[in-house]
Nucleic acid binder design. Sequence first.
DNA 1: GCCAACGTTGGC
DNA 2: GCCAACGTTGGC
Length: 152
Amino acid sequence: MKFWLMKNEPEDYNIDDLKRDKTEPWDGIRNYQVRNMIRDDMKIGDQAFFYHSNCEIPGIYGLMTINSKPYPDHTAFDKKAKYYDIKSKKESPTWLMVDVKFKRKLKKIITLSELKSHKKLKDMRVVQKGNRLSITEVQKKDWEYILKLEEK
DNA sequence: GCCAACGTTGGC
DNA sequence: GCCAACGTTGGC
């Protein structure tokens, strides 16, 4: 089982929306590295942090589970959609997505600044300058370390 | 294949 | 809103 950190802008879709909906397609991935990760490495049952980016308090807000295999991101075919991509064809889709399932909200937000303050987490992509991948893999030791921070 | 120009991400 | 970092595009 692998662990992931998945970013989203809370103004578009946030942890409370996922709590309400229970499961949701994680659409809009338009980066090849990220697409390859979900295609090749993501499995049903993997665990993920729900991270809020581009907002007042960037950080980890909740936990979720990967709930489907990768499948074509149909929003790429929709001319009216924000993430329409003329190059993605139905017979050979460029972009993929997975469904995520709500697990729980964290008891307290683990903010980006808190993550940065822990030397043990310095290898995490999310604390590194210029990291723009919307999904990154999290090492097991970092996953467990962060869950302990929640209890403090 | 190089690389300048442009667009996007995302912290601050 | 600013801007650094990075990805993509497209001319050559």
